[in-house]
Design a protein around this nucleic acid. Structure first.
Lengths: 341, 341
DNA sequence: GTGAAAGCGCTAACAT
DNA sequence: ATGTTAGCGCTTTCAC
């Protein structure tokens, strides 16, 4: 039941009449091998279409060239772009990327991580579903010697590198923009309150509201999922209240778009009556009508930077954890224009 | 430079005072081991937090539990959804999924595949960038005993399982719908002419046009990339001609949306003056204004089915290749309504 | 039902 | 600069 014979370094050694240790050395470009033999080996390897057996190398070196990535979902602009950034760096450095999608389920995140074969990855990139108090499934991994780097939704309690957006500043910029446009009763629809990302964005929102001495009502703050549907539902809920807001700051573009759909259904004129601003700069933001004002997140860069850091942790046992904070940028569009042209 | 000691079956064996071969057998639920020892082993394994070393098993069995997935891009609804379907099945069956994104570059596709360590995957799921005449990089893999299953954009020359949409029927349905709505001069903007997918959709388009004896002009058929930007550019090109179409059938929603953006810029009323129909049913289709009529592709199912088939190829050496064709469905929206409400 | 031992393909320490 | 050899953690004969 074996595969059609796999070419090994022994085959190369035999054909060349040298020891297979020398072949191994030549393949890995170790310096204590003569230029001549090296070329001979490389040529023969190509000729025989030799491919290294990573299980064998992995077994002896305890290094695979795999990294794992765990995300709540991949079917949106942000995560798929982050992944592309990760894969890009990994490809350059000769690493393979194993992707796990947990479907926003903490349970599945835990079971995925617990059943992870640690022998098959050198490190892990994770965006947690929810920051749980008990993150032993994550710290176990680190204890076992597999470095983790968090991005976007991070587990603050764990001391390792993290890559995040500048959530606080982004939120401030967004809300300040709304205020400058003349909106005064600003609601915030956001995601799970357990994440530092949502806390930071709320803080930026709240501080700005306070700074400008605007009204704040408890019911104008709604926590739900990160999806378009919940953005939609949030608005219907909000519009049941007596005191309606005149602007919405959404935690991301998906929710903002859901909100816009609901607003349209209720006959509210977006921009003119109610301003909407999102977060991400999903391509959808420029597609919707009216187009959506938003804070851009450098998704690709997040992925690249996170992968970069992980590789450093992998290569240098005691690499000192870094926290990288990437700045966003305001994109002003129609959804925050009082007068539509 | 070793990892903090990894728990092996030898540790379990020692603690239990039995041979490690027995532990191995117990772990894998082989029948020639007593119920009693088995439970003992399992309990101890859990206690010690044992995790199997896949490199070791892989080395001896020549099976990893990894499958590779190669896609041109992941940052859009279709591919990310297909992937989610793949990952779903893989997760259920205990397989890990290694994802490679080639960025629509044939060169990178080839180099990715050529540098693939065959020892680290049991099979491969691929959506080709372009169907090249020389697909030796792909057939090499199969020759080496690694099964491949194609999805969406397939290499027809290679005899293995394939999962595709019903492109011909979908195109016919789309064009027929346009005709029924009263559009008469239907253009087709599509992707690379090298793919069977585009050929089929063109064929469906062409046959329907002929069947209804509608005008066909060579310049109404444009080939470019699968992106929104090229859809946009296609329209500007088309509108330079004297004889303008009154409807657009786009090969996918991204191009259709690009087309809509261009049409709007040119002051053309979508629906009323020019009908637009896409292909995919990307969530964007229901977000744009006017909303986009489209043929839904069962992306999630494509992923599930493809993974399913691959697993069958992996498990059964001589599994007879299947060609699975999944039907789409027409979603009528505003972009093909003559009278906007 | 269980143990002993060979060996998967490779790296690394030790020889030469 | 190259050869010899032990061993990584596991599965799988072959004994008993």
């Amino acid at each position: 039941m074996r595969r059609s014979h796999q070419i090994t370094i022994k085959d190369i050694a035999k054909e060349l009449g040298i020891s297979y240790a020398t072949v191994s050395r030549a393949m890995r470009n170790t310096h204590d091998v003569s230029e001549e033999t090296r070329n001979l080996v490389l040529k023969k390897a190509k000729e025989l279409n030799y491919r290294v057996n990573l299980n064998a190398t992995g077994l002896v070196t305890n290094k695979t060239r795999n990294i794992g990535v765990i995300v709540p979902t991949i079917t949106n602009y942000y995560f798929s772009t982050v992944f592309t950034g990760i894969q890009n760096i990994a490809y350059d450095k000769g690493y393979n990327v194993v992707l796990y999608v947990t479907g926003e389920s903490t349970e599945r995140e835990i079971s995925t991580i617990n059943s992870l074969s640690l022998s098959s990855i050198d490190g892990l990139l994770v965006c947690v579903t929810e920051e749980s108090l008990n993150c032993s499934h994550l710290s176990n991994i680190i204890d076992a010697g597999i470095p983790i780097v968090f991005f976007d939704r991070v587990a603050e309690k764990i001391n390792t590198s993290k890559v995040v957006q500048n959530d606080y500043d982004g939120a401030m910029t967004a809300v300040k923009h709304l205020i400058e446009q003349g909106y005064k009763r600003i609601a915030h629809i956001t995601g799970s309150r357990k994440l530092s990302l949502t806390k930071e964005r709320f803080q930026g929102y709240n501080d700005t509201i306070k700074k400008y001495k605007l009204e704040f009502r408890e019911e104008w703050l709604t926590y739900s999922e990160f999806t378009q549907e919940s953005g939609y539902r949030d608005i219907w809920k909000l519009w049941d209240y007596k005191y309606k807001p005149d602007a919405i700051f959404a935690v991301n573009d998906r929710k903002a778009i859901g909100a816009m759909v609901a607003l349209k259904e209720r006959g509210v004129q977006i921009g003119k009556e109610v301003g909407v601003v999102g977060f991400t700069n999903d391509p959808m933001a420029s597609i919707v009508t009216p187009s959506l004002t938003t804070i851009e997140e450098p998704a690709f860069k997040v992925g690249e930077k996170a992968c970069d850091l992980l590789l450093k942790h992998i290569l240098k046992k005691n690499f000192i954890p870094e926290r990288v904070v990437l700045n966003g940028k305001l994109f002003v569009r129609e959804s925050t224009q009082r007068k539509l042209y």
